[in-house]
Design a protein around this nucleic acid. Structure first.
Lengths: 228, 228
DNA sequence: TCAAAGTTTCGATGGATATCGAAGTATGAT
DNA sequence: ATCATACTTCGATATCCATCGAAACTTTGA
């Protein structure tokens, strides 16, 4: 028998600033070792260890042992969704240090939202896809237009394959930094991996910020007329 | 400039069991006075007062003064979404007391998910709408079929009016107790208020559980062949 | 004007837990 | 074998904050 669902137990796990920092790092969709996460949260390895145990026990993250390393990653895309949704409500925290400001700028410009692109780049690309009539926004989702069908296939994305997945093809995900929707779902994920394949974007280690490469700058401009 | 969004500040607000209990009560979509909320959380009015101040400061709830009462309600439907999403991840907490078991049963059977129906009733109604070909589930949303168009209008729901709203018409909302989708969005909200109007369901004071009336039992069976 | 009800502020208390040093266990390299 | 690295466990400390009693404030009703 299930009683009242307790938000509080899960919220408690997320509430601690150190744990939140580690979860934020994992929101990049990467798997990271414990020491790396300790570094992200600016805490000692001992402390990180206890935190990570709690996160695993709470089913927010999973571990894989590989030799003397333990690699952690978010337990599921639902966890990522919860974190992103929480971020939507979170107040804009003022920047304190220069380093923080650099990081803030990077993360606002382009970042992964677990498996799809977010930030200015993510939102702008989505806007372009819509204004070029490749996607059609119908409230909680995007519809791929006939033109879009062809365009995505030419880009090397197999829509038929994506449709076979259980997952939603193309949905609207609220961007906490831009306060505007960007493309999520299977198509969003496929698009992101295509940009990575083409090396138009690059991961920044242990961060969910993403670097737009020189090639990317040129090609995104050619393709969409946008400057980054 | 926005830095890393801190989940933790919002999560901290939700993390406290007393505050969580008050938020859960407000998830019914009602506005409740402070004393009532203190009662829900089983804490003294003083303690409730400090908690409610924090929730207001964090923009999770809003207050309206009316005479010597202060009425609280969730600040927005986004807050409700966040709470429901959190509930999705929350572990099934075992029931301890008899009273709790009663409450748990009621809340699982039928409850409001802020402005639409959830629980066994919400899920079952949605299933029926789909199997009768009135709604068509297309991953993150539901599409109203031609038959559905007519059916909803006959029920007294003005779809044209609903479509004019900015809000998504009909989306899939994951039910934490049933682990299945139910109907949300403007249509979900309209449907719920229609059931209330028809008195097929009734609010249980200061709870998000909903009572199915005798009329409701009869009519839901006539309309959908479901027994409650 | 007084009393009662709803709510807040203040101050003291207590419990929970994040933190790290120290020490311990694995794994891998030399 | 020996040492270094990655990580964990234990124990002590310190901080945060939820809680409530006491007292005040405000509104309503008599």
């Amino acid at each position: 028998m299930i009683a009242d669902p307790d938000f509080s137990s899960i919220a408690t796990l997320i509430a601690d600033p150190s744990r939140a920092a580690m979860l934020a790092a994992l929101l990049g969709g990467q798997t990271l070792p414990a020491t790396e996460l300790a570094h992200c949260a600016q805490i000692s390895p001992q402390t990180a260890s206890t935190h990570l145990n709690k996160l695993v026990a709470g089913h927010l993250v999973t571990v894989k042992r590989q030799g003397r390393h333990r690699y952690y990653c978010l337990a599921s895309s639902e966890v990522a969704t919860v974190l992103e949704t929480l971020a939507t409500l979170a107040p804009a925290s003022p920047v304190r240090s220069f380093q923080q400001s650099q990081h803030a700028q990077a993360i606002r410009q382009a970042r992964t939202c677990y498996d799809h692109l977010a930030g200015q780049l993510g939102v702008e690309l989505t806007r372009q896809l819509v204004s070029r009539n490749l996607l059609n926004p119908i409230e909680p989702a995007y519809q791929v237009t006939a033109q879009g069908e062809q365009w995505f296939n030419e880009l090397g994305i197999d829509l038929k394959l994506l449709r076979q997945k259980r997952r939603a093809l193309a949905c609207q995900c609220l961007d906490w930094s831009e306060r505007h929707y960007h493309l999520a779902g299977a198509l969003g994920a496929a698009l992101q991996s295509r940009w990575f394949e083409l090396a138009w974007i690059q991961r920044i280690p242990a961060s969910r910020a993403v670097r737009i490469t020189e090639v990317g700058r040129v090609e995104f401009f050619k393709m969409f007329g946008i400057r980054f």
